[in-house]
Design a protein around this nucleic acid. Sequence first.
DNA 1: AAAAGCAGCAACCGCATCACC
DNA 2: GGGTGATGCGGTTGCTGCTTT
Length: 641
Amino acid sequence: MATSNASSKLMSVIENAGADRRRKEDGDNHPELRVSSSSHLLLLSPSPISFIAFLISGILADALFLELVILLYLASEHLVVDSALKESLILEFTYCISGLHSITVGVTQLKFKDMSRNAKVKVDNGGLPRDPIDSHLVDKGRGVGSTDGVFLKKGPWTSTEDAILIDYVKKHGEGNWNSVQKNSGLTRCGKSCRLRWANHLRPNLKKGAFSVEEERLIHELHAKMGNKWARMAALLPGRTDNEIKNYWNTRIKRRQRAGLPPYPVEQCEQAVAAEGQQNPSLHEINTGDLGFLPNGSFHIPDVVFDSLKASQGFLPFIPDLDEVSASSLLMDSLEQTQFGSQMSCMLNCRRGLISQCSSFGGNSEDLFSSLHPYDDSTGKEIMQSVGHSFSFDQDPAGKNHLPPFDVQGGHSFSNGNSSTSRPTALKLELPSLQCSEAELNSRWITSASPQNLLESVDRLIRSPPRSLQVESKYISPPNNGLLESLVYEATQSSAKNHSSDKNSNSFAPTPGDMGGSSLDFCGAEFDEYGDPISPFGHSATSIFNDYTPVSGSGSSLDNQPYADTFPVLSLKEEPFNQFQSPEREQETPAKSIYTWPDALLASSDWFGQPSGPFIGETPTSDSMAFVTGHDLSGDKGTAEA
DNA sequence: AAAAGCAGCAACCGCATCACC
DNA sequence: GGGTGATGCGGTTGCTGCTTT
C-alpha cells in the first residue's frame, strides 16, 4: 500500500465519494449520519489490517462517504501515503463533518455541539461562501469585507481555512501575512491570518486552563507590567497575549463583582516580603517584631505606594505618588471607603503575616500604636477615620486574636462591597447562618490557612453562586489596569457614601452586601463550586459531561461498558492542530484537550492496542468521543446495531 | 421547556511602532 | 524627514454555550 499507485487509488476513492456526498448534500442536508457498526467494531479493535479490511468492505458495501473518509484518515496514519493525500483526507474529513449534527458509529452517537464555531461558515477552498449561512453574512454585509474588489471573509475560521493557513506557513514560514491571501487563496486579511496563526495554529501552543503556577506568574507579571499582554505572553511559553488578556479580564470582572482586589493577598505578601528585603524596618514587622519602628513614617503605606508605583503608568489621574506623603495618602485614601477597603487589603498583606505570629496578642489599637512610634493616636485616627468599630476585636481574654486591621474591618471599610478576602472566606466556611461571631473568629483562626481560604475565595469568585453575583454598583472605568479601577471605584464609592448613610458604617453587612450575601451559603454549598479554571478543579463529571453515548439497543455490545475498549479522544474547542507538540500531551487536560486527529496522530499505539491518549485511568462509558470540539452529550436516539 | 442572564472566548478594530523607500 | 506598508499590541465586541429562573 505504500506505493504511489495505492495513493492514487485512495485519492480516487476520496474524490468519487466526495462528489457523491456533495451530490447528496445538494438535495438533502444530512444533519445526522449513521455509520455502520463495522466502524464501531473497527474502533474496538483497531489495527492496520482491520483498517484495510474494513476499508475494502466499506468500499464494496458502498459505505457513506464520511465513513470512508474516517477509515481512510485513520488508515493513512498507518499507510505510507504522500502528504498531499493526507492533506486531502484532512480537508475532506473536516468538510464532510462540518455540516453534521451527529454521527452514529455503531451504538454510539457522536453528537456535535461545538462544531458551530468552525463549521458555521463553510467555505469551499477558502473562497466565497457557498452555503446559506455565508450568503446570509454577505447579504448583511457582515462577515466579509472588501479590499480592492476582493471580498475578505471575517468571523470564525473554518477548519479548511486553518488547514490552508497551516499549509501556507509550512511552506513559506511566518510573516508576510498579506501575501497569504494572494498566494493561498484564503480570503482573509493578513492581520486575521497572523492572529489566527499566533493564537491558535502555531506549534507548541498550550490550550486549556491556566495552571496554578501560570496564574501566579500572571499575577506577578501584571503587578509589574500592567496590561502588557504580549510581554507577559513572552514569559509564558505556549500562551498567547489574547489568552492572558481574556483570563485577566474575566478574572478582574469576577473580583470586581465581589469587591475584591485584583491581586491575591499572597501576592501582596510576596510584595511585602520583597519590600521587606529592601526596607529592613518593614521586614521587622513582617517577621513578627511589632515593636517600635526605627525613625520614619508609616511603612505600611510605603508598601502600598510601591504597589501603586508599579502600576503608576496606568493611573493617569493619580499624581506622582512620590509627591504624595505617605500619611496623607493613607488618610485620604482611607477616607474613601472603597479604596480604603483596597488599602485594607494591601495592609492585610501585613495582617496575614502578622496574624501568623503567635506572639502577637494585642488588639487593633495595639497594632496601630505599634505602627506609629510617635503618636499612639494615629492608629485610632485611622480606625476612626474609616468608621471602624473596635468592639468586635475586643476580646478581654485575648483568645480570639483577630488580626488587626482586618477583617470584619474589611467590611467596615466597604460601603457595601466586601473588600478583603478573609471575611468572605470566613463566611464561606460557615455551615449556616447560626454561627456566632466568636465561632466565626475561631473558625477563621483555626480552620484554614489564609492562603487556603484565599484560594477558596478565588474559587468562589470564579463560580459564584447566583446569590453572590452582586453587580457592581459602579460604572466600570476604562479597563486599563485594575488599580485604576480601584481608584475609580474608590471615588465612586466615596461619592456614594456621601449620599447614603446606610452603607457607610458597621460590621453588620447590609442585605445587599457581599458580606451579607456571603452569609447565605455554607461550606457544603461552597464545596460545590469547583474551580473551573484549575486543572484540578474539574471533576471527572465535568470532563466527561460533555458527551454521552447513546444507550445501547440491547445487544451484548451495548451493555458492555466501554471502559476497557474505547480510547478517550475527547473534545477540543478548536480545529485540530497538526503541529501539536509532544509536551502538550503531557499536560493535565483541564478541559478538552485532545482533538481526535491529534490524538490519533500522537497515538500510534492506538492501532495496535488501545493505549492512546486516555483521559483518566478508567474511561467510562461516556468516553467514546472522537470528533473534535464536540459535545456528545446528546443522549438521543437508539443505537443501531 | 423556554427565556434570560452570564461567562468565556475568538476575532475584530484602531492605533502605535518599525522598516523600507 | 516624510510616506507607505507590514506588523504588533491592547481594547473592545459579538457569538456561543452554560446556568439559572
